[in-house]
Amino acid sequence: MRMSFYHFLMTQRNPNSADEVQQFANNAFFDSAFPKQSTDFEEISKYLEENADYLPSMTIFDESWQRYIDAMN
């Protein structure tokens, strides 16, 4: 079974980093409504666009998603 995006994102956490993906991961950790079991790009993207005020740019999500896809292949 494929790892959820959230589970992958949690492997990117680093509270002492300035890397945007790592900061996104740090912030998503505290988002109790994040779709934690999802592997669907559209579902996660829509959620972030509507709810994630901690994500300054969707390009950070796009980069995170690409890292996720690369790690799953």
Results as ranks from 00 to 15, higher is better:
residue 1 M to W: 01
residue 3 M to N: 09
residue 3 M to Q: 15
residue 4 S to K: 01
residue 4 S to T: 05
residue 5 F to R: 00
residue 6 Y to E: 06
residue 6 Y to H: 11
residue 6 Y to T: 03
residue 6 Y to D: 07
residue 7 H to W: 09
residue 7 H to V: 12
residue 7 H to Y: 13
residue 8 F to V: 05
residue 8 F to P: 07
residue 8 F to I: 07
residue 9 L to S: 06
residue 9 L to F: 13
residue 10 M to Y: 12
residue 11 T to L: 05
residue 11 T to G: 07
residue 11 T to V: 05
residue 11 T to N: 07
residue 11 T to D: 04
residue 11 T to K: 03
residue 12 Q to P: 10
residue 13 R to F: 10
residue 13 R to Q: 14
residue 14 N to G: 04
residue 15 P to F: 13
residue 17 S to H: 13
residue 17 S to Y: 08
residue 17 S to N: 12
residue 18 A to E: 15
residue 19 D to P: 08
residue 19 D to V: 12
residue 19 D to I: 08
residue 20 E to Q: 14
residue 21 V to S: 02
residue 21 V to T: 03
residue 22 Q to P: 05
residue 22 Q to M: 14
residue 23 Q to D: 04
residue 23 Q to K: 11
residue 24 F to Y: 02
residue 24 F to R: 07
residue 25 A to F: 00
residue 25 A to Q: 04
residue 25 A to H: 01
residue 26 N to C: 14
residue 27 N to H: 05
residue 27 N to S: 09
residue 27 N to I: 01
residue 28 A to W: 12
residue 28 A to L: 10
residue 28 A to T: 13
residue 29 F to M: 10
residue 30 F to M: 14
residue 30 F to Y: 15
residue 30 F to I: 10
residue 31 D to T: 11
residue 31 D to Q: 11
residue 31 D to I: 06
residue 32 S to T: 13
residue 34 F to D: 02
residue 34 F to W: 03
residue 35 P to C: 09
residue 36 K to F: 08
residue 36 K to S: 09
residue 36 K to N: 05
residue 37 Q to G: 10
residue 37 Q to M: 11
residue 37 Q to E: 14
residue 39 T to F: 02
residue 39 T to I: 07
residue 40 D to W: 00
residue 40 D to R: 04
residue 41 F to S: 10
residue 41 F to P: 12
residue 42 E to P: 08
residue 42 E to N: 14
residue 43 E to L: 02
residue 43 E to M: 05
residue 45 S to T: 05
residue 46 K to S: 12
residue 46 K to V: 15
residue 48 L to H: 03
residue 48 L to W: 00
residue 48 L to I: 07
residue 48 L to E: 04
residue 49 E to K: 14
residue 49 E to M: 11
residue 49 E to N: 08
residue 50 E to H: 10
residue 50 E to N: 09
residue 50 E to L: 05
residue 50 E to Q: 12
residue 50 E to M: 06
residue 51 N to S: 09
residue 51 N to M: 03
residue 52 A to Y: 01
residue 52 A to L: 03
residue 52 A to I: 01
residue 54 Y to W: 02
residue 55 L to I: 01
residue 57 S to E: 12
residue 58 M to P: 07
residue 58 M to W: 00
residue 58 M to K: 10
residue 59 T to E: 13
residue 59 T to K: 10
residue 60 I to Y: 10
residue 60 I to A: 00
residue 61 F to T: 03
residue 61 F to I: 05
residue 62 D to W: 02
residue 62 D to P: 01
residue 63 E to W: 10
residue 63 E to Y: 08
residue 63 E to N: 06
residue 64 S to Y: 00
residue 64 S to K: 01
residue 65 W to P: 06
residue 65 W to Q: 04
residue 66 Q to P: 04
residue 67 R to A: 12
residue 67 R to Q: 13
residue 68 Y to R: 00
residue 69 I to Q: 03
residue 69 I to Y: 01
residue 69 I to V: 14
residue 69 I to C: 04
residue 71 A to G: 09
residue 71 A to N: 15
residue 71 A to M: 14
residue 71 A to D: 15
residue 72 M to V: 14
residue 73 N to M: 13
residue 73 N to Y: 07
residue 73 N to W: 05
residue 73 N to A: 13
